[in-house]
Simulated assay, not measured.
Amino acid sequence: MTDDEVVEALRVVASAGTLPPPATPEAVTSAEEVIGFSLPPLLRRLYVEVANGGFGPRQGILGVRGGAAQGNFADIADLYQDGPDPSGRIPAGLVLIYDWGCTIWSLVDFRDPAGDMWCNHEGACWPQGVNLAEWLTGTLAGTLTVETLLESQPTS
């Protein structure tokens, strides 16, 4: 799917009224300032044009300030605030966006405009081999699951 097709597909989901309203441009800018990287363009569009998080798998991705939370996690900047990862296992610019449970996270690479997706589990961090558009398309179709994420983990 193209970015426009992803935006339109998520607009259909948003029209059901189950997602938070879109983020303000100021909330997005504030998150970028905390994180130190610009949001990938598709993620920015989704937050500002469709909904402030809540879309994607199950209960949906985290939003920026005022958007969808997940458990104790308020927003993507809140998670990133203390630094990308004190252990050094998660490179700067990778932003936690979705908690699958059992310490399994999907992350978006803010260093890349395509928003390459990464996975973090039990101290290991690896690329998922898909970008944000492909990740969202897979979660909408039900073809991208926590099991497929763990299957992509490199063996060492």
Score class of each variant (00 low, 15 high):
G36K: 08
A14L: 05
L136G: 03
G54R: 08
P91Y: 07
L150W: 12
Q128V: 13
R89L: 09
E33N: 07
A14G: 00
D85F: 03
W118M: 00
E32S: 07
V28P: 05
G54S: 04
S152A: 15
T139C: 14
R111T: 12
G53I: 06
C119S: 10
S156I: 00
F55H: 00
E49L: 02
E147V: 14
F55V: 01
Y47R: 02
W126H: 10
P113Y: 04
D85R: 02
I97A: 09
G88R: 14
G123V: 02
R11E: 10
N72M: 12
L96F: 13
R111G: 05
E122R: 12
R58H: 11
L62E: 00
Y80I: 01
N120F: 10
C125D: 06
S38V: 03
Q153E: 08
D112K: 05
A68H: 15
L136H: 12
R89F: 13
L46V: 03
H121C: 10
G83Y: 05
L107G: 04
S152R: 13
V6G: 01
A141N: 14
P41A: 06
T103H: 12
S152Q: 11
E26W: 13
A92T: 07
A27M: 04
Y98S: 09
D112N: 11
V13S: 06
V48L: 10
P40R: 06
F73H: 08
L62V: 09
A141K: 09
M117E: 03
W118E: 02
G56R: 01
A51V: 01
A74H: 10
V146S: 14
V64Q: 02
V146M: 15
A27D: 11
V34H: 09
V108R: 07
G36N: 08
S30Y: 03
Q128G: 02
Y47W: 15
A77Y: 04
L149M: 14
E151P: 03
A9D: 11
G66Q: 11
N52C: 00
L107S: 07
G53C: 06
G60S: 04
E26T: 13
E134D: 13
D85W: 02
Q70W: 03
S156M: 05
A124R: 15
S152I: 12
G138D: 07
G115H: 06
L140N: 14
C102G: 08
V95W: 03
G36T: 04
G138F: 10
S87I: 07
S15T: 06
L136W: 15
A69L: 00
I104H: 09
T137N: 04
Y80G: 03
A27N: 08
I35V: 08
N120E: 13
L136A: 07
R11C: 02
I97M: 14
L39Q: 00
P41I: 00
N72S: 13
E5F: 12
W105I: 05
R11D: 01
W105A: 02
V28L: 08
R58T: 06
L149V: 07
R58P: 00
R111W: 02
